[in-house]
Design a protein around this nucleic acid. Structure first.
Length: 434
RNA sequence: GUGGCCUUAGCUCAAUCGGCAGAGCAUCGGAUUGUGGCUCCGAAGGUUACGGGUUCAAUCCCCGUAGGCCACCCCA
């Protein structure tokens, strides 16, 4: 057994699984570009305050999952934490760099690793990847629908057409306090039936009780007051408009009254994407919501915002479970092999010249006999082999078409052009077949 | 953070009652000198996750640690 291993909850993405990830990354970047969401990056760690204030000190993410780091030396007295999500950092950057002076809303996209010091499980890691989309500076319901539709489209184009879209409104500071009171009043007479954590939540964040899966209180949850009946007129109008826009866009969705989201900064619109039929923990594929108070909370002017985070690890798992055909690893177009096993220099020189001409080419650098070299080329999926032999004295090499099993002599000065032409023919053929 | 199940070669798994640790796949090499995917032969690969304990003897029984999985909690 190896002495060293990847830290708990992290893993290596080896070359054979990278193609799926690259496809998802490419899709996310392409969608962001098509929708006008500009790429940005923030540090992988921030002052822990950014998360504690932004996400909320009483949330699970901050209370037990924040991945704190400290410099081993230096005069820094700051407390740092690896980012558990992207929104807080993006909003911090928005405030720091005065992005409120840019045309509003500011539409941004970020793709990268997030960290939560959680107990690992299938589909749950301490380092995981999210694609994050934010629109900061637009209060209107139309942008809510634009973003929800964007997430839905990502899943569809990724190969998961049946993802459930769940939406809800959790009100705003004008109407939520009264609803909190109503929920407390509903549960208070039955406090003895609540588990320890649940009783704490009754005081700190009664909304969280509503998405509890505790079967002992399922009946209480079912009969709890519905926030839809407690929204102020502004929130109710906003939510109705979001749903109307989604209908116009043709995004199938349903309201889930228990959907409240785990982060404190959310207001009004909350939404989640679920994998239908999946058991338990991996079924939450992504989610997001509106956070109209967050910019102000992190020191900016009152500014509305909305965004989502999609978990790419879970999409990869879902695609594998669904049996979606995964892209094959890239293979070289041309492999240069030689009759003289020891003459690696000539093979390497010719491959280098082909690369300089723009071809995807590698040389077989092992000192093994020609048969083995061809075997390796075929297994790599190469279409063409250049065979270097005695003909080199006449300025010629053999070009072998591996799938067809045919070959012919080519003059060295013509080699790159011939290979480019032959490979183009193959590419058309294989693409059509795929 | 709580509870349960699990860990043998790179991967998937065997090993009778506690008695010399094996197979398939993958890797590398060979099958008369310059031609591949098939076939045949061979090699390499192990402190049985790690550390203790019981025993003449431990992959096997006991304890601890680490890691994985599952259910909670919660999220992505």
């Amino acid at each position: 057994m190896p002495v060293y291993r990847a830290p708990r909850g992290t893993r290596d993405l080896l070359p054979d699984e990278r193609p799926v990830w690259e496809r998802l990354e490419t899709l996310a970047r392409d969608l962001a570009r098509r929708y006008g969401y500009a790429s940005m990056e923030t540090p992988l760690f921030e002052q822990s305050d950014v998360f504690e204030r932004g996400i909320g000190a009483s949330t699970d993410v901050v209370e037990k999952e924040l991945f704190r780091v400290s410099p081993s030396r230096g005069e820094d007295t700051e407390r740092w934490a690896l980012r558990p999500e992207a929104t807080a950092g993006i909003v911090r950057a928005y405030v720091q760099h005065g992005l409120q002076t840019w045309p509003q809303p500011v539409r941004v996209s970020l793709l990268g690793p997030m960290f939560r010091y959680d107990r690992p499980q299938a589909g749950r890691f301490r380092q995981f990847w999210q694609w994050d989309i934010e629109a900061i500076g637009d209060p209107g319901p139309a942008v809510d629908a634009e973003i929800i539709e964007l997430g839905h489209r990502f899943y569809r184009e990724a190969g998961l057409p049946d993802v459930d879209v769940l939406v809800n409104s959790i009100g705003d500071p004008a109407c939520r306090p009264a609803y909190h009171d109503a929920v407390r009043a509903h549960f208070a007479p039955h406090a003895d039936r609540l588990a320890g954590v649940e009783r704490e939540r009754l005081a700190t964040n009664p909304l969280r009780l509503l998405d509890s899966k505790d079967p002992d209180i399922a009946d209480l949850i079912a009969t709890a007051p519905d926030i839809a009946d407690h929204l102020c007129a502004a929130c109710a109008d906003h939510f109705a408009a979001v749903r109307a826009h989604l209908t116009v866009l043709g995004v199938p969705h349903r309201r889930e009254r228990g959907l409240v989201r785990g982060l404190d900064y959310y207001t009004r619109t909350a939404f989640e994407y679920y994998l239908p039929g999946a058991e338990g923990q991996q079924s939450a594929l992504g989610g997001g919501g509106r956070y109209d108070g967050l910019v102000e909370l992190l020191g900016g002017k009152p500014t509305p915002g909305i965004g989502f985070a999609l978990g790419l690890d879970r999409v990869v798992l879902a695609l594998a479970d669904a049996g979606v055909a995964l892209p094959a690893p890239a293979h070289p177009a041309v492999v240069v092999v030689g009759a003289d096993p020891a003459d690696t220099a000539t093979r390497l020189r010719i491959a280098t010249e082909l690369r300089a001409a723009g071809l995807v080419a590698r040389a077989d650098l092992a000192t093994r006999k020609l048969g083995r070299q061809l075997e390796g080329a075929a297994r790599d999926g190469a279409h063409l082999a250049v065979i270097v032999g005695d003909e080199l004295d006449l300025g010629q090499v053999q070009v072998r078409d591996l799938p067809a099993g045919t070959q012919r002599l080519v003059n060295l000065p013509d080699l790159a052009r011939e290979l480019t032409r032959a490979h183009a023919g193959h590419r058309h053929g294989t693409d059509a077949a795929r």
